[in-house]
Design a protein around this nucleic acid. Structure first.
Length: 757
DNA sequence: AACAACGGGCTTTTT
DNA sequence: GCCCGTTGTT
């Protein structure tokens, strides 16, 4: 029990409360992961078999690290046997074992977002719908949110409320698209991310024996980041835990930042209802950050209405105040921040990897990259195009996928003519039409074209024959050959390696190297880990690879570099020096989140997450203008800066270009008038300081022009009619009815309404 | 069928 | 400003 002395009283109580349901509400930096780690270690020390422990984490990386730490604590390799991973990877594994029960092939494909989008797009086209209205990404997000709430396509079509929503948004056919999409996925032996959870629910619901066996197996269940689980995940956990009720969920409502993709804070509140005799533990002591950072973060999150009250505190040092930097442009922002990092490294002998630049959107990284490169400060970027999303990598993976699952239509379409083998678009389109009409898969049609009325010349038929023969020959080795061997054979004989090897442009060389790296990755993966010398087949790799993210993909050369990432990606991490950049209205908070209070509160939680990543020093920055889609737009500082108690802030302006105006550039953080709008008194352009005008990227609207009864137009919602206006000037709020989406409350200063009459 | 040129839309966030 | 997909050209 010696190891438990590494915990404080609350942590220890939570870690050692073994029987029955418990919820741990853990403030930022309060040692949540520590509790989970020690709890699992404790269970094992108490004699629980690791095979009977299910621990669901938010990322694979978190799972991997936790396993390593547990292994250290318990001093044996037993920890590797815990069922620990993301919801998606754990249940993909289970579905693979139980595939017959739900009618899927063992080697089912996991469609990534791009595959799903392509399929939706194909269906929209086949239904002769306008893809400007039925945008694939939009349709897919609708389908995704239905699945996260366990609404099947059939249920979707029957649901009057949903139907009315879709009619209001002028997209009444989404239900039909959903139904076709599901049929096509099934026919292709493919599941998208949401299906992995949806089908798990189906499996557990329709097969009581299967449910029973997993209930029996998982005697102890732990769920990390519980605030970010959706309904589908909630129900899986509830079912699996029903027998033993040894369920431990850990989370922080203040750090819930995935509601936009269906996460439901309600799950935390439901816990009480589902397990009335549950035990609640609160971890409130922060070990990560200075007093200034903890209290500043508290002062921000206090503005949210929806939250579980807690009192996060720290006994750490006071620390420096949070610096606020104003820059004139996005490029200047990059330079000032890079310079600040550079000189901090010099002055405080800090290491590069102690710094992180956090932003709201990936698109913001550019100016920081350039500025850091100029100063020779090494950096690494997370997000953007991940390794597995690169074209060449996806191409080779498509060969693997098609080998493992011939019905994988998205993979087939991707590679049937790459490298070029003279099977053109027209031929493929014909084959797809035939396949749809006959109700068979594309693979069926191209392997036995003679069975279907497929009007192709013999040349094309021969080429199809060569292609399918090649894939079939790969498939014969699926189970007999280790992953690496087969992967290597496919890569060399399908022509893809040759294709890129021949390309001596820098891009071509890099693509060739990426393919080599993919093969190396497979080699590492297929090296037997235990002594039992079992062959690890390519199919196993494919399941794994579909669920990897770039966070899981860290390579050792990336050490000691400044980190650039989105705030979402930074969840769970910590850095001594944190820069939160681009703090501007419409960027952070995002323009898309200004319509409802709950969306705005999620943005605020996001800011809370960002700030609480910092251990020693936090710096905030914004630019007064930046390029967006090639246009220079004017920006206003984010309301979040104002919302921090000013006593924690150190406001200054920096950068060479503002020297002459430094004296006057004091930022007005007064509490009066929520004037996030105009602050500079020395604005270069003639701007009225009385807040009447609102400058924005798209034209200029004078607030006073909008009146009740006006017909107006909104960027997103289209035409509407103003029903009511209330509030005082800078914060006037209008109630507008849009035929497309219904009634909306809009803040005039942000809504960019255009008066039509 | 293969390639070059052009134009549109886009930026939230990710398993 | 950039990427993607569509169009036009050979």
């Amino acid at each position: 029990m010696e190891y438990l002395s590494h915990l404080n009283q609350n942590q220890r109580d939570a870690a050692s409360y073994i029987d029955g349901p418990l919820m741990v509400i853990a403030g930022a930096g309060s040692g949540k992961t520590r509790v989970l780690t020690y709890r699992v270690a404790h269970l094992i020390k108490q004699g629980v078999d690791p095979f009977n422990i299910l621990a669901l984490t938010f990322t694979n990386k978190a799972a991997k690290e936790m396993k390593e730490r547990i292994t250290k604590i318990i001093g044996s390799n037993e920890g590797q046997n815990i069922w620990m991973g993301t919801f998606h990877s754990i249940f993909a594994r289970i579905l693979r074992t139980e595939h017959e029960k739900i009618g899927y092939p063992r080697n089912f494909t996991i469609y990534d977002t791009q595959d799903s989008r392509n399929l939706v797009k194909t269906i929209v086209k086949e239904m002769n719908l306008d893809d400007k209205i039925y945008k694939p990404a939009g349709v897919l997000s609708r389908i995704s949110s239905a699945k996260s709430n366990l609404i099947s396509a059939q249920a979707y079509l029957k649901n009057a409320e949903i139907a009315s929503d879709d009619r209001m948004s002028n997209r009444p056919k989404i239900g039909e698209i959903y139904l076709t999409y599901q049929k096509r996925c099934f026919k292709a032996g493919a599941m998208d991310f949401d299906d992995l959870l949806f089908k798990t629910n189906v499996l557990l619901k329709d097969h009581p024996d299967v449910l029973l066996s997993y209930q029996h197996k998982f005697k102890h269940i732990l769920v990390d980041e519980y605030q970010d689980t959706n309904f589908s995940q909630y129900l899986i956990v509830k079912k699996l835990a029903a027998t033993h009720e040894n369920l431990c969920v850990v989370g922080d409502d203040a750090q819930s930042i995935y509601a936009f993709r269906g996460a439901n804070i309600q799950n935390i509140l439901n816990f009480k209802r589902d397990y009335p005799d549950y035990k609640l533990f609160k971890l409130e002591q922060n070990y990560r950050s200075t007093k200034v950072i903890v209290n500043a973060a508290n002062s921000i999150i206090a503005k949210n209405q929806d939250q579980i009250k807690k009192n996060v505190w720290t006994s750490n040092a006071e620390g420096n105040r949070i610096k606020v930097i104003k820059a004139l442009t996005d490029n200047e922002e990059g330079n000032v921040i890079a310079q600040n990092i550079f000189s901090t490294i010099q002055n405080e002998q800090a290491r590069n990897d102690e710094f992180a630049i956090l932003y709201r959107t990936n698109a913001q990284s550019r100016s920081f990259e350039e500025a850091l490169r100029k100063r020779n400060v090494p950096y690494k970027i997370y997000g953007g195009l991940s390794f597995y999303q690169r074209k060449e990598v996806k191409d080779l993976l498509a060969y693997f996928r098609l080998t493992a699952n011939h019905n994988d239509e998205e993979a087939l379409k991707r590679i049937i003519n790459f490298p070029k083998r003279g099977i053109g678009k027209t031929s493929i389109d014909k084959a797809i039409v035939v396949a749809n009409e006959a109700g068979v898969t594309l693979w069926d049609v191209i392997t036995t074209p003679e069975n279907y009325a497929l009007a192709l010349n013999t040349g094309t038929r021969n080429k199809l024959g060569e292609f399918t023969t090649m894939i079939k020959s790969f498939a014969t080795k699926l189970t007999s050959a280790p992953a690496y061997e087969l992967a290597h054979e496919i890569a060399s004989s399908c022509g893809i390696l040759k294709e890129f090897y021949a390309d001596k442009t820098p891009e071509g060389i890099s693509k060739y190297e990426n393919l080599q790296e993919l093969l190396n990755g497979i080699k590492e993966f297929s090296e037997p880990k235990n002594d039992d010398d079992q062959i690890i087949p390519l199919g196993d790799f494919l399941i794994d690879v579909a669920l990897l993210t770039d966070a899981d993909n860290e390579n050792p050369e990336e050490k000691n570099k400044v980190t650039l990432m989105t705030i979402h990606a930074s969840k769970g991490l910590e850095f001594p020096y944190v820069y939160i950049v681009g703090l501007e209205e419409n960027l952070f908070p995002s323009q898309m989140s200004l319509n409802t209070r709950s969306e705005l509160e999620e943005e605020r939680r996001l800011f809370y997450v960002a700030l609480t990543r910092a251990e020693k020093t936090a710096v905030l920055s914004y630019a007064t203008s930046r390029y967006r889609w090639g246009n220079l737009i004017t920006c206003e500082p984010s309301r979040f800066i104002e919302e921090i108690d000013p006593s924690f802030l150190d406001v200054e302006t920096a950068g060479p270009s503002s020297k002459s105006t430094r004296k006057q550039e004091v930022f007005g953080f007064g509490k009066s008038s929520a004037s996030a709008n105009q602050s500079t008194k020395v604005a270069p352009a003639p701007k009225p300081s009385n807040l009447k005008k609102v400058t924005s990227s798209i034209g200029t609207t004078t607030i006073s022009d909008v009146a009740v009864g006006n017909n107006v137009s909104h960027e997103r919602f289209g035409k509407g009619k103003v029903i009511n206006i209330e509030g005082d000037l800078p914060n006037q709020k209008a109630t507008v009815f849009f035929p497309s989406v219904g009634q909306k409350q809009l803040l005039l200063k942000f809504a960019k309404l255009v008066v039509l009459d």
